[in-house]
Write a protein that binds this DNA or RNA. Structure first.
Lengths: 208, 208, 208, 208
DNA sequence: GCATAACCGAGACGGTACGTCTAGTCTTCGA
DNA sequence: TCGAAGACTAGACGTACCGTCTCGGTTATGC
């Protein structure tokens, strides 16, 4: 995402192959363990067994590294097409719940909030996430409208925000209460969320 | 929540009355302007017209101050009882949208995420927020169930998470797109959110 | 030296009698134990069992207190008149050696050097010490000249400086080597010093 | 005496060559201008055009820096061999008077007194000074004894202490009276001092 | 006998330096 | 040419101290 995929044909020593990934992993681990205020470049470099200059050679600064670290593990939401609006949304909710529960997803979340707060810093990443995620729901909804399952006058962003928000706050609750849902609970929660909003957006009242 | 409500009967010069509030305000302002990195104790002290030691006399460190600053202005959600579930939820959603849009609410949000991530730091504040907010929705729902407006088998936490999440993510979107909704838009969004989940939780299908 | 011996006849509560002395003692003790850089007003006040304001009520600042503390115990050199130049000088050297060896004398010495270094601060104390001490030797020498024991063309300040310096450096050596001379050694050293300079200032060559 | 003469062969950026000296000079200048209180690490760093951490990378704390600064310029006494005891001593006295009159010599003196007072701090420097200086006089005296100019039963330390003390106290007097001797006066004083003690240590009575 | 006034202890106040730590840059050696 | 090591400037961190101030209380005089 940052490195620039130049064929690296030059003279001199080629870049150590594993370094990039080790650094990203180290960054993610440090961020997960100590949070933003305890996240130091020196610690990342040391943990990755790498000199600080190697890190700065590839990322311009702290934010860039962190952003990239999260991005590298944080956008693994795969689109689905189960054939029904209910199925698509339930699968999406499930994915989101699992995503935000994991370290990378959670880190992505925090960074999104952090970067969204500072105006003089580029919220590139946050916007990217926003767009990627937003497009997911958009496709689901468009398919549903085509099939006639969903009313056309529903603002899609509202659907996105509701589902994402629900998953997000649920993950937050879990962390605050130092609780970890079982697989069954997660699935139940996903179904609950969808059940709650489906009647509100569907064309046929009374469907579940 | 701040210093312990000791009646301060002792000897010695009593603490300057206004200082506490001025420092908290300054902290919130600095945080809002510069974000977490860029938030300086020296700057807070200077802005509050106060010595650094005065700040450290009352708060043990940066996090404690920031947490308190946000808490002092971040829990101003007033419960409402409009008589109907739809009215209550719409009013709540409206409050939340406005809350998260403002500096204090947004800051509270960020801090909630921050403190929820670090285990060796006390997420006291985050838990408090969680509980206060959770109780709001609980009361609304209990009233609705009493009135027969709401099904009894809906998990209330799911309702909470959905509404809060929707408001939260909407505020996030606004910031990411550097957009500021008008009052009309905010109200419309609140109604949309409620309209989306109301059919899913209400006893009478087809109601809006 | 600082207090100003006003009869303190006014109304109001009179100053606690013992306080003055206790503070001075505490100051001297702290200075002796921790040196100039570890000498704090808070510590002095605490050690004297006294509030800081009580200290500042009597002395304007740190230097004033320290100066006074040393002065109160540091100028106890008593003049002597043994009837002969050799006797007078030996007695003086002995006094000085003992003086500089003790805590108060040593502290006075340090302060003299400290205050002599800073031009914007009043070396009042240092000058006072200098003058008091200088006068001692002056009197001894004048008596000796009257008696015909001492040549008239000797600059008296040179005599003063030599004897004082010798005693001073000897005390310094003792401290540096963590050594403490016995009484016999001190007396021997005093005689040595005088024996060394006596032929150089006496009218009769070859006298000891 | 400073950093340990490791050949610094390793990897990494080598220490900036000039920095050490610039810092020491700045330290000495600051000390000379503002004295011990008023001597600030920040000011030293700023004056040397250096970051504070660079200073702390080389010296553990304020005292260490100051001590070293003085040591670097404070031990420039060169031995002399004029061929006669009187000549040697006069030259030594002259050197000392000039040494203690200068900023570095005076600073060295103060620090010697300071470090000699605090037992938990290493008086390394003070001892070094003591030894270096002591050896000077020792050599002079031994040569004189060989030549038969000086009696063998004179304790050499007494000679050292007397000459050093005389020069020291003279410098002190100059400062206290804000006076600066001319070259002629300094030389006269040196001759006076030696004339005073020479008869007392020489084998031939009546020599000057 | 009661107000007045100066003192006392405690300790909070604004300010400033301390010594530590981090960010991001720069400079060397070795691969 | 790149990588690791690590010194560099800049500046925030949290602590400690200075000298000032404001309390509640105490102890004397003087009306």
């Amino acid at each position: 995402m940052t490195t620039g995929e130049g064929p690296r044909r030059g003279r001199g020593r080629p870049r150590t192959p594993g370094a990039e990934e080790r650094i990203l992993d180290a960054a993610l681990a440090e961020y997960g363990e100590h949070g933003w205020s305890g996240f130091t470049m020196d610690a990342v470099a040391r943990r990755a067994g790498v000199g600080k200059s190697t890190v700065y050679l590839r990322w311009s600064d702290k934010d860039a590294l962190l952003t990239d670290a999260v991005a590298s593990h944080g956008l693994e939401l795969t689109a689905v097409d189960t054939g029904s609006l209910a199925g698509d949304l339930t699968q999406l909710a499930l994915n989101l719940l699992r995503h935000f529960h994991g370290a990378a997803g959670w880190a992505a979340l925090r960074i999104t909030f952090d970067t969204a707060s500072v105006d003089d810093r580029l919220g590139d990443f946050a916007e990217a996430v926003n767009e990627v995620h937003g497009r997911q729901v958009e496709q689901i909804c468009l398919r549903a409208i085509e099939r006639g399952e969903m009313a056309e006058d529903i603002p899609i962003t509202a659907v996105t925000e509701t589902i994402y928000g629900a998953a997000m706050v649920h993950a937050l609750s879990e962390r605050l209460e130092a609780r970890a849902d079982s697989d069954v609970e997660v699935e139940a929660r996903a179904r609950h969320i969808v059940a709650m909003i489906l009647p509100g957006i569907s064309t046929m009242p009374g469907t579940t």
